[in-house]
Design a protein around this nucleic acid. Structure first.
Ligand SMILES: [Zn+2]
Ligand SMILES: [Zn+2]
Ligand SMILES: [Zn+2]
Ligand SMILES: [Zn+2]
Lengths: 145, 145
DNA sequence: GCTTGACCCTGGAGTGGCTACAAGGTTTGC
DNA sequence: GCAAACCTTGTAGCCACTCCAGGGTCAAGC
């Protein structure tokens, strides 16, 4: 299988496949006489695994760790659980901070309905006022996430 | 005001302030004889505005647009409303995709409770099976967002 | 035999929003 | 007189790609 076929079989762009190889997530395939990469079904399965984990927003570093586990089936699996737990914690924290953000943006949006001059726009007035510190705590301590 | 004082007054790191200047969000301040940047209260207010918008996760490019509006108070404000609407849409879409992700990760997490050998870990088995296409659609069409 | 187009290769640059140096100059306090 | 704390510029790194330049390879069609 050449890289274009692997790309079509998995829906992963050719450049991304080469990037994963350079990042150590895909073992370097053998090469045809002309230098073209030649993949087998093991590569396809491994690439699908990587993409499935990426769809779960798992970082490439963590995917590398999971692949190491696959290569060491007799090890203890506790670190896998902890990896998934940490991922879940990150996702939940991000959801909470985005929900807070959504509330702030909704409130902001309600400050202007019509097509006014900028000087009269309630949104901009609110932003300027909040930045001055009136009723705003959000930018005193870092971004929401 | 020197850059360190502005940094302490706003809680924004010195490097970030210089970065904003290079990005065109802060006008270049005047310089003292020794070449040190010398800021006034206008800079402080503008920097606070930038940080407040960043806390709302507005991109630097959009913040630049908002600053342009501040400099043109007689323009129509419709684009401001649209900018905030687009930001809200992005945040809401991201929340929905992260909630889907949270459900998937929670379901995944339930596949292993104990400290087993990797070969028996339900999480890893589930990941491998899903990557093979058993009951998985997530990686067929791009990442969740 | 010659062209066209699809495919492949490597290596480097760009994205956003910072952060972290390196290598120097300046000021402040003791 | 000297160290610590400040300032300057410029560059490189982070993540996970994405795109491009500048080439090589190969099959089909004329
Ligand atoms: Zn999947
Ligand atoms: Zn308005
Ligand atoms: Zn704020
Ligand atoms: Zn387990």
């Amino acid at each position: 299988m050449r890289i274009g076929e692997l790309s079509r079989a998995t829906g992963v762009e050719v450049e991304t496949i080469r990037y994963y190889e350079k990042a150590g997530l895909l073992p370097p395939p053998s090469r045809a006489d002309n230098g073209y990469r030649a993949y087998g079904s093991g590569h396809l399965e491994r690439l699908a695994f990587v993409r499935h984990c990426r769809a779960l927003d798992i970082s490439l570093a963590d995917i590398g760790r999971l692949l190491d586990f696959l290569d060491h089936p007799e090890a203890a699996c506790g670190d896998i659980n902890r990896l998934v737990d940490a991922q879940l914690d990150r996702v939940r924290a991000r959801i909470i901070s985005l929900q807070a953000l959504e509330r702030q943006l909704s409130a902001l949006r309600r400050h202007c309905d019509e097509d006014l001059q900028v000087r009269d726009c309630g949104i901009l007035q609110e932003l300027v006022g909040a930045a001055r510190g009136e009723a705003c705590t959000c930018h005193e301590r870092g971004a929401p996430a």
